[in-house]
Amino acid sequence: MTGAVDVRAVTKRYPGSLALDEVSLHVAAGEFMTLLGSSGSGKSTLLNVVAGFTEPTSGSVLVDDADITGVPPHRRELGMVFQHYALFPHMNVFENVAFPLRRRKVRGAELRRRVGDALEVVELGALGERRPAQLSGGQQQRVALARAIVFQPRVLLMDEPLGALDKRLREQLQLEIKRLHRELGITFVFVTHDQEEALTMSDRVALLREGRIVQVGTPQELYETPASRYVAEFLGESNLLDEDGGLLLVRPQHLRIGPPDGPGLRAVVREVIYVGGGLRIEVERPGGQRLVARTTVRPEELPRPGDEVVAHWSEHDSVNVPA
C-alpha cells in the first residue's frame, strides 16, 4: 500500500509569527489522519505544506519515502478538497471531474468511464450535465470529492471540507467520507476544528496548538488519556480537578450527583438542562469551580437549582492528566 506521509521537523515562519514550530508527523499508508485545532493552530498551514501551496521555512515532507519538499503542487499527485469547494463555475459537473484527467491526457471512452465511476462513488451519477451553481452545498462538495479522487491520488487532503455545511448534512457527509476512505483504501489527511468530527471520523488525530502538535493518537487515546489539560479541555466536556499537585479528569458521563449526606465533593446545583435522552447538570463547588454531569436520572430524583448535593465518581472512571 502506498501513500505514507512523513512530515519532518517542519517550521513555517511568517513575518512576526511562527505558524509551525518543528512539527513532525508520520501518517501511515491508508490511514485516516485528522489535523485538529482551533483557528491559528497551524493545522491548515501544515496541510498546505503537504499540498505544496506553502513552502516550509525549514524541514521536509516525504511521500512514500520520496522527498517532495519544493516540488510544485501540480507535480505532487495529491488530491485536494477545499472548504469552499473550488468547483470551476464555467464547467459542468462532468467537466469539473474530468479536469484532472484531461490534464493527464486521458481521453474518450476511458475518460467517460473514469468520470462516471467517480461520480457513482459520490452518488451523483445523474448530475453530470449540471452546473455547480445548480447544486446544493452538499452536492457541490461531493463533486469536489469526485474530482479529487478521479485521478487516483495516493493521498487525499481535505481542508475543513464540511465547514460550510449545516449540521445534518455535515453528519451525512462525514459517514460518506468514512465510506469513501474504506472503499478507496488511500491515505486521508483531514483538517477540522470540530473535535466531534475528528473523534468520529479518524483512525488517528493530531491535535495542534500554536504551531505545535500537542498529542497524536487514536480518538480513544486522546479522549480517555489526554496528555495535558489543553487536550482534555479541547476534546469533549471535561471536569478537571486539582489533586495533590496533579490533575484528575472526570468526564461528565462519569460524574454522578447524589444526596448531600453521601461521600464526594460538596456542591450546589446551578443548572439542570434537559438534552434529548438525558440531563445536563451543572453544579458549583464552594470555591466557585463548576462541574458538569450528564446523566439519565429518573424524574422523581430530579435535582433542582439551589439543591445541596455531592458529586462523586468511580475511581476507574477518573484519569490522571499531566499538569
Binding site: A51, F53, P72, P73, H74, R75, E77, L78, G79, M80, F82, H84, A86, F88, P89, H90, F99, P100, R102, R103, R104, R147, A148, F151, L157
Partner: peptide, 24 residues
C-alpha cells in the same frame, strides 16, 4: 482560489490559466 485548486489537481500554472482563468 480556483487556480490553486486547479494546481492541486495536477494542472501546471499555464494549463490552469487557459482552462480556468481565461474562460472566466
Amino acid at each position: 482560489r480556483l487556480l490553486r485548486a486547479a494546481e492541486g489537481l495536477g494542472a501546471t500554472p499555464v494549463f490552469a490559466f487557459w482552462r480556468v482563468y481565461a474562460p472566466l
